[in-house]
Amino acid sequence: TEEFVRLWREAVRHNQTLHWNGTDFIPGDEWAEEFARREEEKL
């Protein structure tokens, strides 16, 4: 979602874990980066 992408970019900028829907998205984590890339492509 647009909100997820916005929060993810913020988390990456501050190198912080994003807690989203009970899942931890960690900047630099391969799975999280791939998920975020797919979400961005949907926008």
Rank of each mutant, 00 (worst) to 15 (best):
V5A: 04
L18H: 01
L18S: 00
E30I: 12
E3Y: 06
E39N: 09
R37Q: 08
R6G: 06
E39V: 15
R6P: 08
T1A: 14
F4I: 00
E40T: 11
I26Y: 09
E39F: 14
R6N: 12
V12A: 04
L43I: 10
E10Y: 05
H19F: 08
G28F: 03
R6F: 12
A36M: 09
N21T: 04
L18A: 03
Q16T: 14
D24M: 10
R38F: 09
G28C: 10
L18P: 01
A36V: 12
A11G: 00
E33C: 11
T17Y: 04
R37E: 07
E39A: 15
E3I: 10
P27W: 02
E41D: 10
F25Q: 00
L43H: 06
A32E: 01
R6A: 08
R9A: 12
L7V: 02
F35Q: 06
T1N: 13
A36Y: 08
R38H: 12
N15G: 14
H19C: 08
L7F: 04
A36Q: 02
E39R: 07
R37L: 09
F25K: 01
Q16V: 14
H14Y: 12
W20Y: 12
L18M: 08
W31N: 06
A32V: 02
V12K: 14
A11E: 00
R13M: 15
R6C: 15
W8A: 05
E30L: 13
E10M: 04
E41C: 14
F4V: 00
R9K: 14
K42T: 06
E34L: 07
A11H: 04
H14W: 10
V12D: 01
D24H: 05
R6Y: 13
A36I: 07
F25D: 00
G22V: 01
E40Q: 11
T23L: 15
W31G: 05
D29L: 06
F35Y: 14
T1R: 14
G22N: 10
V12G: 00
R13V: 13
E33S: 04
D24G: 01
T17S: 09
E34K: 07
I26D: 07
D24R: 05
R37T: 08
L43M: 12
R13E: 13
E2W: 10
W20A: 01
Q16Y: 11
L18D: 00
R38W: 08
K42M: 07
P27T: 01
E10S: 01
D29G: 02
R13N: 10
D29A: 06
N21G: 11
L7K: 11
A11R: 00
W31L: 06
L7W: 04
R13S: 12
V12Y: 03
F4H: 00
E3T: 10
L18I: 06
V12N: 03
D24F: 10
R6M: 09
E3V: 08
H19G: 03
V12R: 08
E2L: 13
N21R: 14
W8R: 01
E34M: 10
E41I: 11
E34V: 03
A11V: 01
W8D: 07
N21S: 08
R6D: 13
E3A: 11
E2N: 11
D24E: 11
W31E: 07
K42Q: 07
D29M: 08
R38S: 12
F4D: 01
E30K: 14
F35H: 07
A36C: 13
W8Y: 02
L43Y: 09
E10N: 04
I26E: 09
E41Q: 14
E10A: 03
A36R: 01
W20F: 11
N15D: 06
T17G: 05
R37W: 06
W20K: 01
A32T: 04
E40W: 13
R37Y: 05
R13I: 14
N21K: 14
E41T: 11
E2R: 13
E10G: 00
H19W: 07
W20Q: 00
H19N: 12
W20V: 03
E10K: 04
T23D: 08
V5P: 00
E41W: 08
T1I: 14
T1W: 14
F35G: 01
T23Y: 14
K42L: 08
N15Y: 05
T23K: 15
F4L: 02
I26F: 10
L43S: 05
N21Q: 14
A11L: 03
T1S: 14
E30T: 13
E2G: 11
T17H: 04
L7S: 07
L18R: 00
H19T: 13
G22K: 04
E30F: 11
H14I: 13
E10H: 04
W31F: 09
R9L: 12
F35C: 10
E39P: 01
I26M: 12
F35E: 03
T17N: 06
E41F: 09
G28W: 02
W20I: 06
Q16L: 14
T1Q: 09
V5H: 07
T17E: 04
W8V: 06
V5D: 08
R37V: 05
E3M: 09
D24A: 09
L7C: 15
L18W: 00
D29I: 06
I26P: 05
I26V: 12
T17W: 07
H19M: 04
L7P: 00
E40K: 08
F4G: 00
R13Q: 14
T23A: 12
R9H: 14
R9Y: 12
E40A: 12
F35W: 09
G28H: 03
P27C: 10
D29F: 04
R9E: 14
L43N: 04
E41M: 13
R9W: 13
G22P: 00
W8S: 04
L18N: 01
E41G: 09
I26K: 14
E33D: 09
D29P: 02
E33Y: 03
L7G: 05
G22C: 10
K42F: 06
R37M: 09
E34N: 12
T17P: 12
R9F: 10
R37N: 07
Q16G: 05
T1K: 08
W8P: 05
K42E: 05
A11T: 01
F35M: 08
I26W: 06
W31V: 08
R37K: 12
Q16W: 10
G28S: 04
P27S: 01
N15V: 04
R9M: 08
E30W: 12
G28P: 03
Q16F: 11
A32K: 02
E39M: 15
T23Q: 15
F25C: 05
W8K: 01
G28Q: 02
T17D: 02
N15I: 04
L7I: 03
E30R: 12
K42D: 03
W20P: 00
E30P: 15
E40I: 15
N21D: 10
E3F: 05
W8L: 06
W20G: 02
A32F: 03
N15P: 00
E40F: 13
A32I: 03
W31M: 08
E34G: 08
E40C: 14
R13F: 14
H14V: 13
D29R: 04
D29T: 11
E3G: 07
N21E: 11
N21H: 12
V12S: 05
H14D: 12
N21V: 04
W8N: 03
E34D: 13
I26R: 14
P27V: 03
V12C: 00
R37H: 08
H14S: 15
W8E: 07
L7M: 10
E39H: 10
Q16C: 15
E41N: 11
E3Q: 09
R6W: 11
A36L: 05
A11D: 00
L7H: 09
H19D: 04
W20L: 05
F25M: 06
R6I: 10
G28N: 05
Q16M: 14
I26C: 11
R9N: 11
E2P: 09
G22T: 02
F25S: 00
W31A: 10
E10C: 14
D29H: 09
R37P: 01
A32D: 02
H19L: 07
T23N: 13
A11F: 02
E10I: 06
F4R: 00
E40V: 13
A36D: 01
E2S: 11
E40G: 07
E34Q: 11
G22D: 09
R13A: 15
W8H: 05
F35V: 09
G28T: 03
R13L: 15
A36F: 13
E3K: 07
E33G: 03
P27F: 02
A11S: 05
R9D: 13
P27H: 02
E2D: 11
L43G: 05
V5L: 15
E39K: 08
E39L: 15
T1G: 14
H14E: 13
N21M: 14
E34R: 08
E3D: 13
K42R: 11
E40M: 15
E39D: 02
R6Q: 09
N15E: 06
P27D: 01
R9G: 12
A11M: 02
H14A: 14
K42S: 07
F25W: 04
L43Q: 06
G28E: 02
G28A: 02
L18E: 01
F4T: 00
E41Y: 10
V12M: 07
E10T: 02
E33W: 05
R37D: 04
T23S: 11
V5Q: 05
V5G: 03
T17L: 09
L18G: 01
T1Y: 12
G22S: 06
